[in-house]
C-alpha cells in the first residue's frame, strides 16, 4: 500500500485573518514535491499547520495521513505518526545538548507508544548511530554537544535540522526553506545530504525560492501557492521557470489570488521578513 499525506480543501486563519483558502495537495511516500510561492502566500503556514502549530485555526478541511484525519492530533502525536517539519527559523533551547534532545526525540518517534519516563534508547547504541549520521552529513561530532540551536549560525541551524531529519526518518517531511541563509556550496551539500539520508524513501514537500536545493532531489511535482491557494501544479520545469522568471506570469493569470496575497504581505511583516 502506498502511504499518503493528503490535504483537502484546507482553510486556516490566524487571529481571524484567513491565510490558507482551500489548499488541496496529495503527496505519496517516495515522491518529492516542491512548493513555491511569493512572500506571504502561506507556504510556512501550510508546513506549520501540517505539523500542528497551536496558533493556527483550521476553519475547514482535512489533513489525512493514510486516510486518517490528523487534525485532532497534537504535534508530538503527529511526529510519532511520521510527520516532520524542518523549521525555517529553528528555535534555541538553552542548556539542552543537541545529542540529549535527539536521543529523547528519536526514542519517542521510534516507539510511538512509549510512556513518559520509560527508558530511552541505550546511550551507546544511540551515540554510534548519531556519529554515523553526522559523518554522513560531514558534521563535526562536537556539534552534538552544543545546546540545541543556541548560538548556531543560520547555516548550522539548517544542518541541525537535516541531522534531525536523518535521525527521525519520518514518512513525510516538510522542509521549510532549508536552503535560506546558506551559501551556494552549503545548499548543494544540504541537497545532497537530503538525498543521501534517504529522502527518496520519504514523501518530501520542499518549500524553497531557489532550484539549488532541488538539484539532488528533483521534484516530480511543483506547486505554486499564491494568496493561500495552490494555483498551479506542474513538473520540475515549473520550478525552473519560477526560479528564472519569477511570479509575473502566475500573478497575471491569477489576479484574485495575487490580490489576496498582497493583502497578507501588507499585514504580515514577520513572514515577509523571514521569507
Amino acid at each position: 500500500m502506498i502511504e499518503t499525506l493528503e490535504i483537502r480543501d484546507l482553510h486556516v486563519e490566524i487571529e481571524g485573518k484567513p491565510i490558507l483558502r482551500g489548499v488541496n495537495l496529495q503527496i505519496n511516500r517516495g515522491e518529492t514535491h516542491a512548493l513555491m510561492g511569493p512572500n506571504g502566500s502561506g507556504k510556512s503556514t501550510l508546513g506549520l499547520v501540517i505539523m500542528g502549530h497551536p496558533n493556527y485555526e483550521v476553519t475547514s478541511g482535512e489533513i489525512l495521513l493514510n486516510g486518517e484525519n490528523i487534525l485532532e492530533m497534537e504535534a508530538d502525536e503527529r511526529a510519532r505518526a511520521g510527520i516532520f517539519y524542518a523549521f525555517q527559523r529553528p528555535i534555541a533551547i538553552p542548556g539542552v545538548k543537541l545529542a540529549d534532545f535527539l536521543r529523547h526525540a528519536t526514542t519517542n518517534v521510534r516507539n510511538p507508544d512509549r510512556k513518559e519516563g520509560e527508558d530511552l534508547i541505550p546511550m551507546r547504541e544511540f551515540r554510534a548511530e548519531l556519529k554515523e549520521k553526522m559523518g554522513q552529513l560531514r558534521m563535526d561530532t562536537d556539534f552534538a554537544r552544543r545546546y540545541v540551536n543556541d548560538g548556531f549560525s543560520g547555516g548550522e541551524m539548517k544542518r541541525a535540522e537535516i541531522l534531525q531529519l536523518a535521525m527521525l526518518q519520518p514518512k513525510f517531511a516538510i522542509l521549510d526553506e532549508t536552503d535560506s541563509g546558506l551559501d551556494a556550496d552549503a545548499v548543494r551539500l544540504a541537497s545532497q545530504s537530503i538525498a543521501e539520508i534517504g529522502g527518496e524513501r520519504m514523501g518530501l514537500l520542499i518549500i524553497t525560492h531557489h532550484d539549488k536545493l532541488l538539484e539532488h532531489n528533483p521534484p516530480q511535482y511543483t506547486h505554486v501557492i499564491v494568496g493561500g491557494r495552490i494555483v498551479e501544479t506542474g513538473g520540475p520545469e515549473l520550478a525552473a521557470e519560477l526560479h528564472t522568471k519569477g511570479y509575473e506570469r502566475i500573478r497575471r493569470e491569477h489576479p484574485e489570488a495575487s490580490e489576496a496575497n498582497d493583502k497578507n504581505t501588507e499585514v504580515e511583516p514577520a513572514e515577509l521578513a523571514g521569507a
Partner: peptide, 30 residues
C-alpha cells in the same frame, strides 16, 4: 516558558510535559 520552545520540542515527538521538563532542566544547566 516560551510556547515556541514547547512546540519545537513537540514537533520532535516530546509530550508537552516532557518538553517543559527538558526546558526547565536546560534552564538550570548553567
Amino acid at each position: 516558558v516560551d510556547e515556541e520552545l514547547i512546540f519545537y520540542a513537540r514537533a520532535r515527538g516530546f509530550t508537552r510535559k516532557e518538553a517543559i521538563q527538558m526546558i526547565v532542566t536546560g534552564f538550570f544547566q548553567q
